[in-house]
Deep mutational scan, measured.
Amino acid sequence: HNLTITQGKLFFHYNPKLCLSEIHKMEEVSGTKGRQERNDIALKTNGDQASCENELLKFSYIRTSFDKILLRWEPYWPPDFRDLLGFMLFYKEAPYQNVTEFDGQDACGSNSWTVVDIDPPLRSNDPKSQNHPGWLMRGLKPWTQYAIFVKTLVTFSDERRTYGAKSDIIYVQTDATNPSVPLDPISVSNSSSQIILKWKPPSDPNGNITHYLVFWERQAEDSELFELDYCLKGLKLPSRTWSPPFESEDSQKHNQSEYEDSAGECCSCPKTDSQILKELEESSFRKTFEDYLHNVVFVPRKTSSGTGAEDPRPSRKRRSLGDVGNVTVAVPTVAAFPNTSSTSVPTSPEEHRPFEKVVNKESLVISGLRHFTGYRIELQACNQDTPEERCSVAAYVSARTMPEAKADDIVGPVTHEIFENNVVHLMWQEPKEPNGLIVLYEVSYRRYGDEELHLCVSRKHFALERGCRLRGLSPGNYSVRIRATSLAGNGSWTEPTYFYVTDYLDVPSNIA
């Protein structure tokens, strides 16, 4: 807008934040220059609390790290170098490059900038070799853009010569660093050979998330399962459950009422301010606690030095998902009996873990797994792929695949051998790939016309006998059925096997 004052003059007093240069501009645009008398524009009460600059400061050096910015700028000295009290560095987070010096300023003089007072450097006698002032900004957020400017702080001049310097606002972004852990990993099994893994992005990506790394490792069953005799009275049979499938998407929606109208769909109840505040506090606490764990609990591995020492970490090797089922080394339970199943799973520490690289999504279907087997899954978020990966501390989750139908069934015939004193040795093959492992066998036998009897055969007993022995049988026709019990439950009964026990007292003698 054009402003013209045809008559009258300007009068400025007691404006401590208004620089004289701005008042002189007002004289020019209003056409009143030359009308004012000496005392109409006070030299001592206008701009006496402001830094009124008329020179431009330029930054000469900028260096960044993930949490620091090192700045240096060209030296500046007023005509009387004693008038320079120091520099004021202003900075704040700036997602967009549209910041002005006066953003967030209120009537009390406060604003949204963080201000650092910096002492002037030592003055050199040689004007050509003056030290460049600077400042190291610490405690910054990774991968965050900051708006920065600097200006001088000078003393009051009796001659009211307006001098000083100020830089333009520059924008500097800190470097990326390792992201925080992925949030809320959930693993479920939808079949006997697959596990579905879902997660949420890290709360602090500290860069642009480029991919996720998912490692999985087959877990050995508890050692007590191999040692305890679950045929003993009072000892509860062990059981394991597989990871249940995901709930429906509708039930997972946030901010939804727990109660549904019987007449149909209901609208979600909005969260109160107290609920939102509580969630923010919980989120802040979780982030602080995660940072504490990362800094205190997890110790970084030592990389190899120039002395030739090897990095103890196993090298990563990509495998196809079809090879995942046989990740671990199978060892027989008892070496003397080769027909026992290889369900003991000690994992070799030198073995390469299978892994998958996930790009542009937060889910993965891990296939080719062994049925009813526990897996430990390790999830890392990465925001750099080359020249070397920059990934987060791992988040861990466990899951067990679903049982395989008929995996616990005894394959092959049940054979028998009759000894003296009416002892019958029953023999059968253990299931080759049971659900988890076989903890015991149930032997059901009966003599024709009598009630059915049951015998429990422990895992250890089966390994020693290759089956079991029935003792003290009365003469007669017998039928026997056997079924295995694994961590997933009972298998199917075998087809009945028949044998006849004679009275050993009636056996004919070869003595003449």
Rank of each mutant, 00 (worst) to 15 (best):
I418F: 09
A463M: 12
F355Y: 11
G449L: 15
G368C: 10
F372D: 02
P312Y: 13
A488T: 03
Q252P: 05
R316L: 09
G467D: 01
R318W: 15
W216I: 09
R301L: 10
P387N: 14
A336L: 09
L228Y: 03
Y396G: 07
Q256Y: 03
C456I: 15
T373I: 10
S223M: 12
N383L: 12
T373V: 14
G207C: 03
E417A: 15
N360D: 03
T210Q: 14
G449D: 11
N339G: 07
M427G: 13
R446A: 13
Y504P: 05
L369I: 02
Y230I: 07
A484Q: 02
S283A: 05
E217D: 09
S274L: 03
G308A: 13
G472R: 05
T347N: 06
R376A: 07
V423L: 02
L470Q: 01
G467P: 01
E433W: 06
V501D: 02
V414M: 07
V443I: 08
E404M: 15
A407T: 11
Y504C: 14
D222Q: 04
V365S: 08
R319V: 10
E417G: 09
Q256E: 07
R400Y: 09
N421L: 08
Y498L: 02
K432P: 15
F462M: 10
V296H: 06
V457P: 00
T303L: 03
S363W: 09
L487Y: 11
L369H: 00
S257R: 07
G467Y: 01
N435P: 01
Y396C: 11
S320M: 05
E310P: 05
T210N: 02
S257Q: 12
V359T: 09
T373H: 08
E282N: 02
K302I: 09
D408P: 00
N360S: 08
P403M: 04
K432S: 13
L237C: 10
V345F: 10
E356C: 10
P238A: 08
L470R: 01
Q429S: 12
I209G: 11
Y230K: 11
E217K: 13
T328K: 12
V501A: 04
K278D: 11
F298A: 15
I410M: 02
A309Y: 11
G264Y: 13
Y478M: 00
Q256W: 06
V329S: 10
D506R: 11
E356R: 08
K432V: 06
E362T: 10
F285S: 13
D503S: 10
Q256N: 13
I438P: 01
S251F: 06
S486E: 00
G322C: 11
E249M: 07
W493E: 02
I482S: 01
S344C: 11
S251Y: 04
Y396D: 01
Q256I: 09
S474H: 09
L228T: 07
S257G: 04
K317C: 07
R218F: 03
H416Q: 11
P387F: 09
R353G: 14
L455N: 03
R471W: 05
P332K: 04
F462N: 09
E404R: 07
L213H: 05
Y292W: 04
L440P: 00
L225V: 06
K361T: 07
T340Y: 09
G325S: 12
S344F: 07
V507I: 10
N383T: 04
P403V: 05
S284C: 06
R400P: 02
L235P: 07
L277H: 11
V299R: 14
P312D: 15
N339P: 13
Y230N: 13
P338Q: 11
A381R: 02
T497F: 01
Q380W: 10
R376D: 14
R319Q: 02
W216L: 06
S458I: 03
R466G: 08
S486R: 02
C269Q: 02
A395G: 07
E452M: 06
L293S: 05
H425C: 02
Q252H: 09
A463H: 07
G306L: 06
E290I: 14
K460D: 07
V507Q: 13
L225N: 02
D323Q: 15
F462K: 09
H254E: 03
S398N: 05
E495A: 09
S363V: 14
S315N: 13
K317I: 11
Q429G: 15
S268Y: 03
P475E: 06
I438E: 02
Y396K: 15
R319K: 13
T485W: 08
K287I: 04
N339S: 11
G374W: 07
A330K: 05
R353V: 15
V297N: 09
D273M: 09
R316Q: 10
E247T: 05
F337W: 08
S223Q: 07
R390H: 02
F337S: 07
E221H: 02
G472C: 04
L228M: 08
G306V: 13
V214A: 06
S315M: 10
E465P: 01
